[in-house]
Amino acid sequence: MLSDKSSATVRATLPAVGAAIGDIAELFYTRLFAAHPALIRDLFNRGNQSAGLQKQALAGSIAAFATHLLAHPDTRPDVMLGRIAHKHASLGVTREQYAVVHEHLFAAIAEVLGEAVTPEVAEAWDEVYWLMANALIALEERLYAEQRVVAGDVWREWTVTGRAEETADCTTFRIAPADGAPAPAHRPGQYVSVQVELPDGARQIRQYSLITSPGSAVRAITVKRVHGPAAAGPDGEVSNHLHARVRTGDTLRVSAPYGDLVLADSAAPVLLASAGIGCTPMLSMLEHLADTGHAAPVTVLHADRSPADHPLRGDHRALTHKLADATARFWYEQDAEPGDGEGLMDLTAVPLAPGTRAYLCGPLPFMRAVREQLIARGLPAADIHYEVFGPDLWLASA
């Protein structure tokens, strides 16, 4: 809870801080990486930094947290905090790193806002920062304890036991702990971080959803090769490395599983909507529903460029057919086959059972469009859950 004194100051200065938060975030990262170059080399995603995505996510989360403290002083934005904490835990973020962030963030605030940052203003925003930081630290320490790992050391060596080319740009890697010990438990929908050493010596980290259910003896991830202007550089450096260099028998450093988009243990009807590589967490959920004999209706929806671009398309259909009451419908922008939809996903004719819980994963515009359609159909917002690959820009773009 924010103190009354700080609440008044934050309320008065939030418009100015909010208007400048993008500049503050950019200067913060510049200062942080100048002082600690190992962070951009071995912890932060260089592609997201290059594209400015992490700056947008940081700005959105700080502004959203402060706004929530003012509007709902007796509660915390636990959904937002939980999503950040899971991502941090998968990277091994430590308590000590929050002090480093504080140092450079507040130096950036002072430099951007200048004389407007009086001691009173600095004290109020310091309180906001530590309320958010301490909440995240507590959540992350709990996540580490659940997986029996130590902050800063979440990694194990895993062996690639198989590799399959799913589409021209998507490859599945089957993996197993190199020491032969059991794989750590995960929940359907969670991801792992994978750390690889690149030719320049950087040890970059990316997150990939586990596509198999918790009950499966196999663990696997499906990686989409990232194209674009920087496909040979930061934007696609890890995915291209995995596609080009990692073969059966090779070793990867893999984190414990994390992620807050998980299938609830419930007998309620389920809707799984995805686009592109966003189908990967849905495959884990779908397999878990099949494994547990889920009897309520399950609606499986997917949108892609074409059937040839749809990763794990056969698994998508096969797992749906294992369920007692499930239907699958796919939409393609081109080369749609008989029975498939053409163009963008349209839920107008899709049956929606009462009490449905919906799970979405894919590009942000796709998830926004599907969420709007579901709400228009009467599904409560609280029953719609989503996963963003990369920095969560939902808040930043709201």
Score class of each variant (00 low, 15 high):
Ser6Ile: 09
Ser7Gln: 13
Leu27Ser: 09
Leu32Cys: 11
Phe33Arg: 04
Leu39Val: 02
Arg41Ile: 10
Leu43Arg: 10
Phe44Ile: 07
Arg46Gly: 02
Arg46Leu: 05
Asn48His: 09
Gln49Glu: 07
Gln49Met: 10
Ala51Leu: 06
Ile62Arg: 02
Ala64Ser: 13
Phe65Asn: 09
Leu69Tyr: 04
Leu70Met: 14
Thr75Ala: 11
Val79Ala: 14
Met80Phe: 04
His86Pro: 05
His88Glu: 07
Ala110Glu: 14
Ala110Ser: 12
Pro119Ser: 12
Val121Phe: 09
Glu123Pro: 00
Glu127Met: 02
Glu127Cys: 07
Val128Asp: 02
Met132Ile: 01
Glu141Asp: 14
Ala145Tyr: 13
Ala145Lys: 12
Val154Thr: 08
Thr159Asn: 05
Gly162Arg: 11
Glu165Phe: 07
Pro177Thr: 10
Gly180Asp: 11
Gln190Phe: 06
Val192Pro: 02
Ser193His: 03
Val194Lys: 02
Asp200Lys: 03
Asp200Glu: 11
Ala202Tyr: 02
Arg206Ala: 02
Tyr208Trp: 05
Ile211Leu: 07
Ser213His: 08
Ser213Glu: 08
Arg219Gln: 15
Val226His: 01
Gly228Met: 06
Ala231Asp: 09
Ala232Thr: 09
Gly236Thr: 00
Val238Lys: 00
His241Glu: 03
Leu242Val: 05
His243Tyr: 11
Val246Tyr: 05
Leu252Pro: 00
Arg253Met: 13
Tyr258Leu: 10
Gly259Trp: 03
Val262Met: 08
Ala267Met: 09
Gly276Leu: 08
Ile277Asp: 00
Gly278Met: 04
Thr280Lys: 04
Thr280Ala: 10
Thr280Phe: 06
Thr292Pro: 03
Asp304Cys: 04
Pro307Gln: 04
Asp309Cys: 14
Pro311Tyr: 00
Ala326Ile: 06
Thr327His: 11
Phe330Arg: 05
Trp331Asp: 08
Glu342Arg: 14
Glu342Ser: 15
Leu344Glu: 12
Leu347Pro: 01
Pro354Leu: 12
Pro354Asn: 12
Ala358Lys: 01
Tyr359Val: 10
Leu360His: 01
Cys361Tyr: 06
Ala369Gly: 07
Val370Lys: 01
Leu374Asp: 00
Gly378Thr: 15
Ala381Asp: 14
Ala382His: 12
Ala382Val: 15
His385Trp: 05
Glu387Lys: 07
Glu387Trp: 03
Val388Tyr: 03
Pro391Ala: 00
Asp392Phe: 00
